[in-house]
Amino acid sequence: MDDTPDIPRVAKLLADVARTRIVWTLIDGSVRAAGELAYQAGISSQSCSAHLMKLVHGGLLAVEAQGRHRYFRIANAEVACMIESMAALASGTEPGLPQCLPSTRSSTEAFMRARTCYDHLAGEIAVSILASMQKARWLRRKDAELVATRLGEHQLRALGVDFDSARDERRVFARPCADLTQRRPHLGGALGAHMLNLYIDQSWLVRSPKSRLVSVTPKGNEMFRKLLELA
């Protein structure tokens, strides 16, 4: 019996440039109409429709119908993590210089510092936070995932993280997610998503309405400084 995972099926789905552009447009966790995705991919609506159906049937995208219109999003966090990891691998070996960075220097610096990766925080700040949490023994590695220590659970609750909800989600609780620009992991999984919600709800970060970028507020600068000094 051959129990080899069907990796070629997934690889074939992402081997097409148009389909890659579609999934990369959605990596921010957004929900977008087919027409917008066709424009972003630089293809006709008819061609985009065919690509979208392949991605939906292949399990990479999910579709939602609203009246006569259909809207598409990344199927789940596991798919988003795979895509971001592949993007990091495809960007080469030199840290901080992936080809998909914004065109201006100021935008590039902001992108590298803090942005979203599907439903969690990515970039320099996120990588440093995960490193600090591991050094302070809030989190420890368990195989390919991360688990909270007793100290970590206590501290995360004190910080305001909805720990029980994160633990009860039907997905990986916490995992290292390859960072596109830093070549070191940031925090993914349910815990990563709940921590991003905390940052937004408590005004540490402000989302950009048209991109993955997030801006750090003065309060956020102070709170992130404290997180980075855990150990």
Rank of each mutant, 00 (worst) to 15 (best):
G188Q: 00
G192S: 00
Q202V: 05
F163M: 06
D143K: 15
A34P: 06
D168Q: 10
D143F: 15
S165P: 00
R140C: 08
P102E: 09
F111H: 04
A90D: 09
G67N: 06
I83S: 02
N197R: 12
D6T: 14
R137K: 10
K135T: 11
A148G: 00
G192E: 02
H69L: 12
A90Y: 05
A15F: 10
S49W: 08
R212D: 07
V17D: 13
F163W: 06
S107F: 06
A80Q: 01
E169W: 04
L89S: 06
T104Q: 10
E153T: 01
L227R: 02
G188F: 00
S203A: 09
L139K: 06
G35T: 13
K219N: 07
N221K: 11
L180F: 03
M133D: 03
A90M: 12
L26R: 09
Q46A: 11
A193G: 08
A77I: 08
R184W: 00
N221R: 12
K210T: 13
I7G: 05
S215N: 05
D162G: 01
E145P: 00
V31S: 15
M86S: 07
M1I: 09
M195T: 03
Q40T: 14
K135Y: 11
V206Q: 13
S128Y: 03
R157N: 02
I7A: 13
S30V: 13
S211H: 09
L227M: 12
E84A: 15
A11E: 14
A231L: 04
R137I: 06
R70T: 10
V206D: 07
G58M: 11
V147L: 15
